[in-house]
């Protein structure tokens, strides 16, 4: 056990300093906790559904989730029919029709309704169109909760980190300049983001009676995005518990056997 702790501490110290590696000032992440954290943590399905509601009503106007399929929504408790309906609202391009024509009579691509097996349809056909419509590229959110230092804590702090007043610690830094065209965010690298603050009280209408505060909305969307990035988390942690229990028993038995075999050997 001692060796284990020593190794863990050594590993920890090796990877420390990630957060402070950039010289820029950013406050510590905002305090928040989620049901999926910790040893026994699991996703809260109701929360994921609320988060999906926010994604589909707000975020999806600009941000894609291209690595997810509509069928994955069954994790959130949607029925097969509901998923078919959700998918059918979108259309996907078809390479050609039955006779092999690539364009219709109007010179446009053929499309069909999306199916549960299709990936989430992104809001823009390509990056250039997305930049043209938004002034900057809204990143795909499939992996956002894994692709930033701090993971969900960063995403939450970022969503809640828009500020009217620029704090002294930021403005006093060498090279800091105010950018009137963009939006100041305490946690964003470089501080100025093209996306304005999106989170406010009652931004969507919850149906399950959960308070519709800005903070609750932010937490719900972050939980959903974490699920989008790590849909295997529930299965991973529950399998992990079983494996650990097995190894615990196996290790104890091997130790007993080792003691027995070595009993009459001085070493």
């Amino acid at each position: 056990m001692r060796k284990l702790i020593i190794a863990a501490v050594a590993a920890l110290t090796m990877s420390m300093g990630t957060a402070q590696a950039s010289g820029e000032y950013h406050p510590d992440f905002k305090e928040a906790s989620w049901s999926f954290e910790g040893f026994f943590g699991r996703y809260d399905q109701a929360q994921l559904r609320r988060g999906y509601q926010i994604y589909s009503q707000v975020c999806s106007a600009c941000h894609g989730l291209r690595l997810l399929s509509y069928r994955n929504l069954s994790d959130l408790g949607f029925t097969e029919d509901e998923i078919k309906e959700i998918a059918a609202e979108k259309s996907v391009r078809v390479p050609h029709d039955e006779v092999g024509a690539e364009l219709n009579d109007d010179g446009e691509f053929f499309t069909r309704e999306a199916k549960p097996s299709d990936r989430f349809v992104s809001p823009f056909p390509n990056d250039a169109a997305a930049i043209d419509a938004n002034g900057a590229l809204p990143p795909d959110l499939s992996l956002i909760a894994k692709a930033r230092i701090g993971g969900p804590h960063y995403v939450y702090s970022f969503l809640m980190g828009y500020a009217e007043e620029i704090p002294e610690e930021v403005s006093s830094q060498k090279g800091f300049t105010v950018n009137e065209d963009k939006n100041f965010n305490l946690y964003y690298p470089g501080y100025y983001n093209s996306m304005p603050s999106q989170i406010y009280d009652e931004m969507v209408e919850y149906e399950d009676g959960t308070p519709m505060t800005a903070d609750q909305h932010a937490k719900d969307i972050v939980a959903f995005l974490n699920w989008a990035a790590e849909p295997e988390l529930d299965e991973r942690k529950s399998l992990g518990l079983k494996v650990m229990l097995f190894l615990l028993v196996l290790t104890a038995m091997l130790y007993a056997l080792k003691r027995k075999i070595w009993a009459d050997v001085k070493h």
């Binding site: 992990g240 650990m244 070595w262």
Partner: peptide, 20 residues
């Protein structure tokens, strides 16, 4: 047997990271 015991212990360390 000593290697096996150590291995089992080590897999707990290894798989802790894999699962959590």
């Amino acid at each position: 047997i000593k290697d096996l015991f150590g291995m089992s212990l080590f897999f707990m360390f290894f798989l802790f990271f894999v699962f959590w």
